[in-house]
Every structure is written in structure tokens, then in C-alpha cells.
Computed example of a mutant assay.
Amino acid sequence: MSAPERRWRLVLGAPAETGLGGLADAADIAMDRALSALYNADEQSPSEKRSAGLGGSAPKVARWLGDIRTYFPSTVVEVMQRDAVERLNLTQLLLEPELLEAVEPDVHLVGTLLSLNRVMPETTRATARSVVEKVVREIERRVAARTVAAVSGAINRAARVARPRPRDIDWDRTIRRNLAHYLPEHRTVVPEHLVGYGRRARAVHRDVVLAIDQSGSMASSVVYASVFGAVLASMRALRTSLVVFDTAVVDLTDQLDDPVDVLFGTQLGGGTDINRAIAYCQQLVTRPADTLFILISDLYEGGIRAEMLRRTAAMKEAGVQVLVLLALSDDGAPAYDHENATALAALGIPAFACTPDRFPDLLAQALNRGDIRAWADTNAGRS
């Protein structure tokens, strides 16, 4: 069997043996068995189903989890785990510590565990927390340094000075200001007026309020936003507040020193009352002109829509920078309420999805009071 034929046989399963032949290698047979247990279970006859799939046996599932980690790369393992939870209803089995120790931690698994927070037995909680912590620390490693650098740069550059030191010259703005002094014969601009970056003293310069929709569809966004919130809270130049909401509103600002605590303070699932969340966040705004309000929600409003739009418009009119992220995740184009997104856009409030890797740049753009709409057109999926 050639390499392409082997691949197609593994992809198509046992029905393809007639045309492609059987698998001879022991590792290939084990891979095929692991794939069939998950993806062929619904194609078996009733008598075969009793022995097909992963069933409800924890030891059997644990062995399967070990098999897929042996034969497939971690990115594929994450997809197969997610499919197993959805296709074979393995959610309850994730409450068993021995299974959690066998899984490949990823953002989607964290979301599933958080949705089980209330029904999770104490014997499982410590294992679940270690899984969540492993994912959180990996995200922190990935985004923290870049976020701090981008935000610090934005804050430092917010003040412009007329006599900058050479290392503080903003050459882009300096050239733009001195275009009238262009000398064609020398093909150069004479910089009669220098524009530089100001260096501000250590103080709180901007307030950031993060409001996170914790409905079940926003699981990945909740994980990423909690990590970013903790990173921002560690910066002295910012005063960061973090609020999560469904039909109730919970302020988790006092737990921002540990994003794992933040995540276990959430309760994924339930309804959504964006209006109530915005009403609470309005109370946190004490310096409108220096406040950035970021609402992370798919905008499916279960509360009073007209009030939600009115409150959002009022915040913007008061001078607050208002930004709506339909998703903060790597999951691709999100589902969202197009009508509400369009209504917000009509108020001059951009609404778009953003990946975690782009979020530091978005923060820098917002804190520097840049053109968010133009940034979104270039870097993210706007509504």
C-alpha cells in the first residue's frame, strides 16, 4: 500500500478496504481503531454498537485517551477530545480525576470544565484546577510580554514633546509635520520642528473595564479575556476592572492577581443580560475621557435591547472609548447578533472579532486613541 493509499484508508475507515486494501502495520491498525471508536460509532448496527465507540467505561476511555496521545500530534488530539465530548457525551466522564490526568489540556477543555464547575466533586476539583492552570500559564507565556510591551509603548507615546531627545523622536509624525520643508534638489525633508514621545511618570493614566459574556458559546473568550485581564492588572499605569455576566453580574476585579481564580469564579452557561452588565460597568467609570470599556459578547441580548443600546451610547457620549469584541479566540468567524452589531456600528462603536495574538496590538491602538475602525478593517473581522 502506497503512502497516499494508507492515508486515504485511515481517513475513510474500514469501508475503504475493498478498494485500497487492509492495513498491515501494527501502529496503523491502532490508529485506525482509535479513529473508528470515535468517528464510526454511529455507523454500527445496534448489536455492534454495544461493543463500538468509547462506551461509558472510564478505564476504556482512559486507554483511548492514551492511544490518541501516542499516535497523533497534540493539535489533532485536542480536536479528537473535543469531538469525543460532543459526539459521545463524555462530559460526565471528565469529572473523574483519572480521565482528566490523561487528557491533552487546551482552551476548549478548560471551557468544558468551567461549565461543570457547580457539579464537580471535590475529588476532581484539584485535578481540574491543575488542567486549567496548565492552559492559563501557557497562554500567559504566549501573550504577556507582548501585551505589556504594546500597552507600555502606547502609554509612553501618548504625550508628545517639542524638544525630544534623539531616541524619543517620533520620525513618522516629525516627517509629516515638516513636509512643507521638502527640498527637491536634495530629495530630503528639513525637520524644523521635532515631535517626540513623552516619558510619563509612574501613575495610573488609563482605566480599562472588561465586561465578559459568560454564556456557554463564549467559553474560549472567557479564558483568554481572564488572562489578558490579569496581565493588564499587573501594570501600574492602568486601573483594570473585570466583570463577568450572564443574567447576573459578578465583579472579579479583586481576583485578577490569579487568572485561574478568575476562571473558577465564572459560571459558563445560562442566559445573557448585557444591559444589566453595562449598567454595572457605568458605575465603575469615574474618568470617562481616560476610560476604555471593552465588551466581549456575541450580542445575543436577553435583557432590554433598547436600554442596552441607550446605555452604550451614553458611555460613548460621555467620552468613554467603547469597543465590542464579538469573540476573543482562535475559533474562526463567530456567531453573533447581526442586528445589534449593526445598531452599535451606527452609534460609531466598532464590533468585530479578534484573535488573542492580535489583541495586544488592538489594546495599543485603543490606548493611543487610534482609529479602531481602520485597524479592524486591516486586522480583524468587523461586523
Rank of each mutant, 00 (worst) to 15 (best):
A237M: 10
D251V: 00
L323C: 10
S241D: 14
G303D: 11
P334L: 02
G270R: 00
I296G: 01
D331P: 06
S226K: 04
S329L: 07
Y336T: 03
I304F: 14
L252D: 01
G229N: 04
T240K: 03
P334F: 01
S297D: 04
L323Y: 06
D330I: 09
T253K: 03
M235V: 12
A333V: 11
F245P: 03
G303L: 12
S297P: 08
V322I: 11
L232M: 11
L295Y: 06
N275Q: 15
L256Q: 08
A327Q: 06
R287T: 10
G229M: 02
L326G: 14
L263W: 01
P334D: 07
L295E: 12
Q267L: 15
D246E: 06
L238W: 08
V250I: 04
V322W: 01
D330P: 02
D251W: 00
R287C: 07
A277R: 10
C281F: 08
Q255A: 13
Q283W: 05
L268Q: 09
L268W: 08
F293Y: 12
A230Y: 01
V285E: 01
G332Y: 02
Y280N: 06
V227Q: 04
V285T: 00
R236G: 12
V262I: 08
R287N: 13
I294C: 07
L299N: 09
A318D: 11
L252T: 02
A313S: 14
I294R: 05
R276E: 15
L292Y: 01
T272M: 10
L325Y: 07
G319D: 12
